[in-house]
Simulated scan of single mutants.
Amino acid sequence: MPIGPVLETPRLILRPPQAEDFDGFCALAADPEAARFIGGVQPRESVWRALCTITGAWTIRGFSMFSVIEKETGQWIGRLGPWQPEGWPGTEVGWGLVKSAWGRGYAVEGASAAMDYAVDVLGWQDIIHCIEAENAPSIRVAERLGSRKLRTVPAPPPFKDVVWDIYGQSAEDWRARRGG
């Protein structure tokens, strides 16, 4: 039984994570550059717990990040979508993609679909993106989505010594931007 919806964009399928996504999650977490701003390199055991957390949030919260599947190849290329663990600074749409998917517009394409879902289905009034100041590529993605820097906050536990710039926009601004 599916635990959440499947969203499609011209080039991507966004669906709740499945067991067969584990190796993709591990590859993302094993790459120092790709994992730098999403918790750093993690061993398989920690990735398993993270995958179960993301998947379990679908049951607990009714939403969570999607696995991102490239339509052309059927390959798992990352995870993105709505995210709000306990203590989070707001209703976030976040992203993390494997390096082979960088520079192709997938983060903006997938995050746009996830933002539509967050506003239209989940009823979110605001969407944020938690981004470290050194993460220039994610800042560019946020700006391409129409988000702007709102504030700076310390990340909640267990992210010791991490500070995020919070980018974001209102649902009203997002609807106006997409023309609906």
Rank of each mutant, 00 (worst) to 15 (best):
F25S: 01
L122V: 03
E86Q: 11
A113H: 09
E70M: 04
D161I: 04
Q75T: 13
M65I: 02
R175C: 10
G110L: 03
R44G: 09
G103I: 09
E132G: 11
E132T: 13
D126W: 07
T53H: 09
P157F: 13
R11N: 09
G96I: 11
T59A: 06
D23A: 11
G96C: 14
M115C: 15
A101N: 03
T152D: 11
D165C: 08
S46Y: 14
I13G: 03
S138G: 10
E20H: 05
L80F: 07
I69K: 01
I3W: 08
T55V: 11
I69P: 01
E8R: 14
V163N: 08
D116F: 09
G78P: 04
Q125Y: 03
R148H: 14
V141L: 06
A19C: 04
S100Y: 13
I139R: 09
G105E: 13
I13C: 09
H129P: 03
P32F: 15
I128Y: 01
C26M: 11
S147I: 08
W88V: 08
L97C: 12
L28H: 03
L12T: 01
W124E: 02
R104A: 10
E86F: 06
E143N: 05
M115I: 15
W102S: 02
G179P: 06
A136K: 12
L28R: 02
M115F: 09
A30I: 12
P5F: 08
I139L: 06
A27G: 06
I166A: 02
W124A: 00
A30D: 14
G87M: 08
E72G: 12
I38A: 15
H129V: 08
F66M: 06
G146Y: 05
E172V: 07
G90D: 11
L122G: 01
M65A: 04
I13T: 12
G56D: 12
S138Y: 14
P89Y: 07
F22G: 00
G87W: 05
T73N: 08
I13P: 00
I127A: 04
P10V: 00
W58Y: 12
W58R: 03
D165F: 09
T91C: 12
